[in-house]
Design a protein around this nucleic acid. Structure first.
Lengths: 160, 160
DNA sequence: GCCCGGTTACTCGGATATATAGTGTCCGAGTCCGATGGG
DNA sequence: CCCATCGGACTCGGACACTATATATCCGAGTAACCGGGC
C-alpha cells in the first residue's frame, strides 16, 4: 500500500507551472531538468493530468504544458485521482459471500459489509483533507515561509 | 495505490476469532474454509498479525490462532499496520534536492517539504479514523444490525 | 515589400520493455495427543 | 490398574514460484514556426 511517486512529481510540477508567466506553456523536458526527473516518464504522468482536465497541452515547437484552471481550482485530491485513478484504497471483495460462512447466512439481508463501511469512512477523511488543500494554498505557504523558492522558480522559467 | 486484500481478510478473521468460545484457538484451515479463502496464503497473513502481537498462535494438534488481546484493544489501524507495514502511504523522495531547482536554492534552509506536510496531514486523518475503530466496535455494530451473523459464527466455531 | 506554400525541427501521445511488490504455494521444524508396554 | 515412554499426525513457520502493478523508455503522429519563392 503505497502511493506512486508520480503524485509527488505532479504536485511539484503544478506548483512550478503556477509560477510560469501568464500561463505560458512549459515543455516536459524543462520540468524534468528542473526537478531532476526522467523526462519520458514525467511526460507520461503529465498526460494523465491532461486527460483529467487539470493541465492543458499545446503541441508544436515552443509548446508544452500549462494549467487548465487557476491554482485555486486544483486540489491535491484532483491530482491524486488523476495519477492513481479513482479506485478506492480499500476494495471490498465481498468475502462474506464465499465459503461456509455464506451458506450459513453471513450476508444477512444484503446489509452493506461493516468492514467496507468503516474503511470507507476512514478513507473519506483522507480524501476530504486532500480536497481541502489546493495548489494555491501550497504556494501561499511557500510565499510566507520561503519566498525565495518561488522567486528563483519564476526567474528560471522566464529565462527558459 | 491500493490496499492489499490481506487487510480485509484479517479484519474478518479477527471478528471471527472474537466469536470463538473463551479464546479457544481456531486453526488456519478452519478460518480459510469459513471465509472461502486459500489456506496457505491466509496462514501467511495470520503470521503477520502474530508478529505484531495481535494474535497468539498455539502449535501442535488442536492448535490454531486466537486473539492476544481483547477485541476492544485491537484497532483497524493495528491490523493495517501489521499487514501492510508501518510505511507511510506517501513517501517524499525529496525531489527538491535534485536537478536544476536544487542548485538554485529550492531547499531553502532545510524547511520540511510542503507537499510532504500536507500529505502527512491527510494520511494522519485516515490513520486517526482507523485507530478509533476497534474490533469490538464492529462486533457491536453487527450485534445490533444483524445479530444472526454472530450467532451462526459462534455455533459453527463451537462445533468446529 | 508582402504574402503564400513547403520544409523542418520540435512537441506531445501512445505502444513497448524492465523492476518491484503483491499473490499464491510448498515443504520442513516443532509440538501435543494417543497408543503401548512395563511396573 | 496406573504410569512413563515412544510413535505418529497435525499444527504453525518460513523459504520458494508466479502474477499484477508501477516504473522507465522508445519511436511515431501532429503542429507551429521558419525559410524560400513568387506576386
Amino acid at each position: 500500500m503505497k502511493m506512486g511517486a508520480g503524485v509527488e512529481w505532479m504536485v511539484h510540477a503544478c506548483i512550478t507551472l503556477a509560477c510560469a508567466p501568464a500561463g505560458a506553456p512549459v515543455q516536459a523536458g524543462a520540468l524534468a531538468e528542473f526537478h531532476g526527473l526522467p523526462k519520458a516518464y514525467l511526460a507520461k504522468q503529465l498526460q494523465s493530468l491532461v486527460r483529467a482536465g487539470i493541465l492543458r497541452s499545446t503541441p508544436g515547437v515552443q509548446g508544452g504544458f500549462s494549467l487548465a484552471r487557476t491554482a485555486g481550482e486544483i486540489s491535491l485530491m484532483d491530482i491524486v485521482v488523476a495519477v492513481e485513478g479513482p479506485a478506492d484504497l480499500f476494495q471490498c471483495t465481498g468475502i462474506r459471500d464465499n465459503g461456509v460462512g455464506a451458506q450459513l447466512g453471513m450476508t444477512s439481508g444484503r446489509l452493506p459489509c461493516i468492514v467496507q463501511i468503516e474503511m470507507s469512512k476512514a478513507e473519506m477523511a483522507m480524501r476530504k483533507a486532500l480536497a481541502a488543500r489546493t495548489i494555491a494554498h501550497l504556494i501561499e505557504s511557500l510565499d510566507s515561509g520561503a519566498p525565495k523558492v518561488l522567486g528563483v522558480t519564476r526567474e528560471w522559467l522566464q529565462a527558459l
